[in-house]
């Protein structure tokens, strides 16, 4: 699988799944535009890619800002001429009872997770259509599939991404493919934060997963690579779960062995 001649823009590329994906795509010879609101994190990913002989640039980027998107897309085009892979990965998490969520909190998370994904497609797709080729991967979550207490805001944002992806796929065919991915418990700073908020040990979370482990950012990056590449050229509007079996079935009685 070679991504030579491909240009990928990855939001939230400074940490976790975004960083693992940036490294993997660069390893497969793609030119990578790393964006992140945190300059220090973004620069670390950039240096790591360059250290391994890959090609990348970093752009500081608040995904909820349309101005920032226009700037990021223009800079990418100036540098690499086109963008044909977009990974809308940036997102934030919260855990709170619904009636305790303030409108400001709601709007902030929705602006980053959902509006960020909308703006990304709005400003990148015209360039993809011009080149008649593109693949967009939007990061949803298993929280968009299953219900859980205190997850209403995060879950709703990821549910919006799930639905947005399907509608966009029908709109952008035949030039641009759009798919969504559903990571479960993956070892990132976000899950550390979730563990802290819920006062749950990560080991306990891992044992609730049928494969009895947490996912790694690379597990998700591998899936993004498949969806970004021509290997998946007949796949659009679809959903890909990477959760160690978490959403395949609820916990049930086990037979004694």
């Amino acid at each position: 699988m070679n991504l030579e001649n491909e240009v990928a823009l990855i939001t939230g590329g400074g940490k976790g799944i975004g960083k693992a994906t940036a490294l993997l795509l660069a390893k497969k010879k793609a030119k990578v535009v790393i964006t992140d609101i945190n300059e220090e994190d973004g620069d670390k990913t950039l240096q790591e890619i360059k250290g391994k002989g890959g090609e990348a640039i970093f752009i500081k980027h608040d995904v909820s800002s349309e101005e920032d998107w226009i700037r990021a897309v223009n800079k990418s085009i100036d540098r690499y001429k086109f963008i044909n892979i977009l990974f809308n990965n940036a997102g934030i998490f919260t855990l709170k009872p619904l009636f305790e969520i303030s409108l400001d909190e709601w709007n902030k998370l929705m602006n980053i997770n959902v509006t960020g994904t909308f703006l990304g497609m709005k400003h990148v797709v015209p360039h993809m259509i011009k080149n008649k080729k593109g693949s967009i991967i939007n990061a949803s979550s298993t929280a968009a599939i299953n219900g859980a207490p205190n997850h209403s805001l995060y879950g709703a944002s990821k549910g919006a991404i799930r639905s947005l992806t399907k509608h966009a796929a029908t709109e952008f065919a035949p030039n641009v493919r759009v798919n969504s991915i559903y990571p479960g418990f993956v070892k990132t700073q976000m899950i550390d934060y979730a563990s802290e908020l819920s006062n749950t040990k990560l080991d306990n979370q891992a044992s609730s997963v049928p494969l009895n482990k947490l996912g790694t950012p690379t597990d998700v990056a591998n899936l993004v690579l498949y969806l970004a590449s021509d290997m998946s050229s007949y796949i659009t509007g679809s959903e890909f779960v990477v959760d160690g079996g978490l959403s395949a079935g609820p916990p049930v009685w086990e037979i004694k062995e």
Binding site: L211, F240, V241, V242, S247, A248
Partner: peptide
């Protein structure tokens, strides 16, 4: 092994 955290799920290949 690229999909080593993927089980019990569905892969749709249908052009949308």
């Amino acid at each position: 092994d690229e999909s080593s955290f993927i089980t019990g799920t569905e892969l749709i290949i249908d052009g949308g």
